[in-house]
Amino acid sequence: MSKSFFISKEDAFHICDKSQYKESTLWEKVKLMFRCIYCRNTRFYVSRNTKLTEAIKTSRLDCLKEHERQMLEAQLKKHLKNEV
């Protein structure tokens, strides 16, 4: 990642993605905000990405953990064998 205050669009998108998971540094956020001032594409990406994060948060989505999925898969396979 560039140490300069100016960052590329790709770097800005990457920082924005990391920010959604609270994995970006303060300096990265500052650089992203600065880019947002003069780049419409970055502003659009940040806005859409943030909306997606909000939607996921609001929906309180849940899914199976890896070990739960594996257990379910093993049971289904066992049952499938018996059925055949």
Partner: peptide, 28 residues
């Protein structure tokens, strides 16, 4: 089925029964 639908079915169930273990049993 597991790969394609297990997460969707799990989310569908957990929002309705509010219990992880019961949701897994119902999917099974």
């Amino acid at each position: 089925w597991i790969e394609l639908y297990s997460d969707y079915l799990f989310n569908y169930t957990i929002t309705r029964v509010n219990d992880r273990e019961i949701a897994k049993d119902l999917i099974q």
